[in-house]
Amino acid sequence: MRSFLRKWQDELKKTFTGRADAVPDWVSRLAEGDDPGYHLPGSAVWAVHGSMSPIVAGIRTLLMQSLHPGALAGVHEHSNFREDPLARLAATIRWIFTVTYGSKSAAEEASRRVQHLHEQVHGRFVDNQGAERSYSANDPELAAWIHIAFTDAFLTAHKLWGGPIPGGPDAYVREWAQAGRLMGVEDPPLSEADMRAQLDRWYRNGELRVDHRVAETVEFIRNAPLNPMLRPGYRILFAGAVYSLEPRYRQMLGLSVPRLGPFPLPVRLATKVVLGVVRLALGRPGPSELAARERLRRLGYTEKAQTAG
Results as ranks from 00 to 15, higher is better:
Arg29His: 08
Tyr301Met: 15
Glu246Thr: 00
Leu255Lys: 07
Leu63Trp: 11
Leu67Val: 07
Gly254Cys: 03
Leu245Ser: 14
Leu62Glu: 12
Ile236Asn: 02
Arg259Met: 10
Ala308Ile: 12
Gly309Phe: 13
Glu207Asn: 06
Asn227Ile: 03
Ile221Asp: 08
Ala90Ile: 02
Leu182Pro: 05
Ala153Asp: 15
Asn227Lys: 05
Leu142Ser: 12
Glu207Cys: 01
Phe150Ser: 15
Ile148Met: 10
Leu155Thr: 09
Ala137Glu: 09
Ala106Asn: 08
Pro189Cys: 01
Lys272Thr: 07
Ala171Pro: 09
Glu186Leu: 05
Gly163Arg: 13
Ser134Trp: 00
Arg94Ala: 14
Pro225Cys: 08
Pro232Phe: 02
Ala71Arg: 03
Pro285Cys: 07
Pro166Lys: 08
Gly130Ser: 12
Thr61Gly: 10
Glu216Asp: 15
His212Gln: 11
Ala157Arg: 09
Leu290Cys: 04
Phe238Asn: 04
Asp211Gln: 11
Val56Pro: 02
Leu12Asn: 11
Gly283Leu: 10
Leu72Pro: 13
Arg181Tyr: 08
Asp194His: 03
Pro36Tyr: 06
Glu119Pro: 02
Gly167Gln: 04
Leu63Gln: 12
Gln65Trp: 09
Asp10Thr: 06
Phe238Ile: 01
Ser79Leu: 07
Glu207Gly: 01
Leu40Trp: 05
His78Asn: 05
Gln120Met: 02
Leu208Ile: 01
Glu192Pro: 01
Phe97Thr: 00
Arg298Cys: 09
Gln306Asp: 15
Leu142Phe: 14
Ser3Trp: 03
Ser256Tyr: 01
His116Ala: 06
Leu89His: 11
Pro285Asp: 01
Asp34Leu: 14
Leu155Gly: 09
Gly102Thr: 06
Asn227His: 14
Asp34Ser: 15
His212Asn: 07
Gly50Leu: 06
Ala110Val: 06
Leu290Glu: 14
Ala90Pro: 08
Val126Cys: 03
Pro69Asp: 04
Ile236Val: 15
Gly58Val: 05
Asp34Phe: 13
Val210Glu: 01
Ala90Cys: 14
Leu182Gln: 00
Leu30Phe: 03
Thr302Asn: 09
Arg88Thr: 01
Ala107Lys: 14
Gly276Glu: 11
Phe220Tyr: 12
Leu253Cys: 04
Asp139Leu: 06
Gln120Asn: 07
Gly130Thr: 13
Met252Ile: 06
Leu142Ala: 11
Ile146Phe: 01
Leu40Cys: 05
Ala44Asp: 11
Ser105Ala: 15
Asp211Cys: 10
Gly233Lys: 10
Arg19Cys: 06
Glu119Lys: 05
Leu290Ile: 12
Glu11His: 06
Thr98His: 13
Leu190Tyr: 05
Pro69Tyr: 02
Ser66Met: 01
Asp35Gln: 05
Ala73Phe: 00
Ala149Val: 10
Leu160Met: 15
Val278Phe: 10
Glu108Leu: 08
Pro189Leu: 02
Ser51Pro: 00
Tyr243Ser: 09
Glu303Met: 13
Trp46His: 06
Asp35Cys: 03
Met195Gly: 04
Ala144Glu: 15
Leu280Met: 10
Gln306Leu: 14
Asp187Ser: 08
Ala47Met: 05
His49Gln: 12
Pro189Gln: 06
Trp8His: 13
Gly162Thr: 14
Arg293Lys: 15
Glu192Asn: 00
Lys304Trp: 11
Pro69Thr: 10
Met64Val: 09
Gly58Leu: 04
Gly123Ala: 07
Val210Cys: 03
